[in-house]
Design a protein around this nucleic acid. Structure first.
Lengths: 184, 184
DNA sequence: CGGTTGCGTTCGTCAAACCGAACGATTCGA
DNA sequence: TCGAATCGTTCGGTTTGACGAACGCAACCG
């Protein structure tokens, strides 16, 4: 899925990178974070599997948000070619969706590209309370919406509706669309 | 500021929250993550200090980005002060942008449809720090990206790049795209 | 009623994360 | 040239996170 990066080496690299950016020594950082030099040494060497509290204290001492230590340096420009993205087979859905960008904790909108073939309508059970789905049709025609309130959409059309009630997607012809799943 | 929350209870709450959102039992999650039930039980109880690998495997098993487990839940109260509302007619927009859905404080991603005609490249000055732009091309061909790092995109292609540096949009042929502005 | 299945918690054991101390290497200034 | 200081690494010892087994509970079925 989208959870690929091995955190082992990522953290080691991030620690060294941020420490050098701060311009302090390993011993000094260990001192500020309240850790033993040895611990930090092994962490930067890629040996070891720090506890949350350990890594957190390092984040504090370095003055960087926690996620910067654990997430790989974000590629400045991310390109996902048509059909190349990670296919998400949703637990409770039959449609094929490609996850483009997962929302962070502060930006909980997940971005998908959805491809639909005409035929069986895709029935989606109600899911998370207070979730909202946004749909922009890029090509083809799609009949979508909550049960009983479907609307027909063509290229460029946009619709949003609550995701916490049963709803349907049905392609009237081969179609694809951009889907934004917003769950608060 | 950004480094305040004690991760102890945050993680416990996040784990339970995300697990219930996924609708699986504690035992089931432990199984999928390859952990002992007891470990997970203690984590959700707020007792214990998981290692990175442990927490990571939980993130994978839950299908959520790591940061969602470690960062505090978004504020329940959502406030948009006077004058802070989303500008629909952008000040410097010489392209046609239609605001579809403004992000709340909980989901700070704004959703646009953008139409471009070939000709002058659209130059966008750097804006809000730590903002990210997501672009899915629906039709036509677009050259987009930060200055010096533009990529050419066709229908179905996706790109994201930082929005806090100068960047360009140039239609190589009549095109339209879905634009998600993410500002944290 | 037993018997089974699944749940979440508690307990004892073991591996490993973390610590403190000692080490060689380097850079100073006296 | 010699200490003195600081660097980052390596080596045993201790704390503790993770495991597996057992437990009590509820729901379900014979």
């Amino acid at each position: 899925m989208h959870e690929s990066a091995p955190p082992l080496a990522t953290i080691a690299a991030a620690l060294r990178r941020e420490r050098e950016r701060a311009g302090i020594s390993l011993a000094e950082l260990a001192r500020r974070a309240g850790l033993a030099k040895s611990t930090l040494s092994q962490l930067e060497a890629g040996t070891g599997n720090p506890s949350i509290e350990t890594l957190w204290s390092l984040g504090v001492a370095l003055g960087v948000p926690f996620s910067r230590l654990v997430e790989p340096p974000p590629a400045r420009v991310r390109v996902i070619r048509a059909g190349e993205g990670p296919r998400v087979q949703s637990d409770r859905a039959d449609f094929v969706a490609t996850l483009l960008a997962a929302g962070s904790a502060h930006a909980r909108r997940d971005l998908y590209v959805m491809e639909l073939e005409p035929g069986e309508p895709r029935e989606a059970a109600a899911h998370i309370p207070d979730s909202v789905e946004h749909l922009v049709v890029a090509a083809g025609r799609i009949l979508a919406g909550p049960a009983g309130e479907q609307v027909e959409l063509g290229p460029g059309d946009y619709v949003s509706f609550p995701g916490d009630v049963p709803h349907y997607y049905e392609a009237l012809e081969p179609a694809w669309a951009v889907l934004v799943m917003e769950h608060r």
